[in-house]
Amino acid sequence: MKENKKESIFSKMNDTTLLLTITIVIFFLMYIGAVVFQGGGFTKPQMFFNILNANAALIITAVGMSIVMISGGIDISVGGVVALVSMSCAVYLDYKGGSIFGSILLALGIGVAYGLVQGFLVAYLDIQPFIVSLAGMFFARGMTTIVNTAPFNVADEEFNALKLTRINVPFMGSVNKKGVYVPAYVEIGVIVALIIVVLLFVVLRWTKLGRSFYAVGGNKQSALMMGINVRRTKFLSHLICSTLAGIGGYVYFLHVGSGSASHAMGMEMNAIASSIIGGTMLTGGVGNIIGTLFGVLSLSTIQNIVASAGLDQAWWTGITIAAMLCIFLLIQSVVMAQKKKALKS
C-alpha cells in the first residue's frame, strides 16, 4: 500500500522536479555524512562558504550551460571564454592602465560578442552547437596565448582591494582556538552568482522566454507549431550562456587575481557535469537552475571530501569524482526508467 502511494507521488512529479529532488537529497546526505564521519573543517559554516567562494564562477557558467542544455544545445567554449576574459582583463588593467569599470565592460563585451557569433551560427545557419562551440573553445584558448603568453599576477591596487573585499555573513561565524570570534565571509563573486541564480530561476519559471526554452528543447516541432520563434529562442539561449561565461570569467578573475592561458582548464566539463548532476538533461527540455546550483555544490563537496580524507595521491581525486558522477548518472537513469514503467502500467 505504502509502495503504491510512493509510486503515485513519483509519477505525479514532472521530470524536472523529480531529478531536482534527488540531487538536493543526495547533496544533503553527502554533506551530513562528511560532517559526521570527517568532522573537522566540515562542521564549520566557513567550509561551506569557502566552497561557494571558490566556485562562484563555476556556478555562473554552469547556470548559463543549463539554459543552453535546456533549449537542446551545448556550449563547450565557456572554459575558454573564462580564460580569455581573465587574461584580457589582466593585460588591460596592468599594461594598458585601464580602470575597473573598463575591465568589467571588456569582460561583458567578450561574452556578448561570443554569444552573438555562436548564437548566429547555431540558430540561423543550423550548424551543430557542439562544433561551433568546439571551434569557439579552440579560438578562445588560442587567443588567450596571443593576448599574452606568460601568466602573471595583477598588481593594480584598486583591483586588489576589490579582490580582497569580504562580506561578512551574520550569525555564521565561529570561535577559533584563541577564543576570538571569526566572522564567516563570502566574496563579491558569490553575491553576483546568487543574484544571477535567483534572476534566472525567475526568468525560467515565470516568463514567456523561459518557458519557450523548455518548449524548444523538449520538442522543436511542436514549439514551432505553438508559434514560438525557435531560431530566436536558440539564439538567445547561446547569447545568455556566453554573456554569463563573460561574467563568470570576471568573477573567476576576481577570485584568482591573475591571467593565465591555463586558467579554467576543463571548466566546461565541470559545468556540464554540474548541470547533469543537477538534473538537466542533455537531450533538452528538462532542467532547473536551483538543481545546477546544487550540482556545483555536490561536485565541489566531493572534491573537498577527497582532499580532506587524506587520499593524498593525486589520482584519487579524478577517480572519485568520476565514480560519484557515475553513481549520480545511474541513479537518475534507473529512477527515470522506473517512472516510465510506472506510467505505462
Partner: peptide, 9 residues
C-alpha cells in the same frame, strides 16, 4: 565524461 575525468588518473 566519467572516463574522461578518471582516465588519466
Amino acid at each position: 565524461l566519467i572516463l574522461f575525468t578518471a582516465g588519466r588518473s
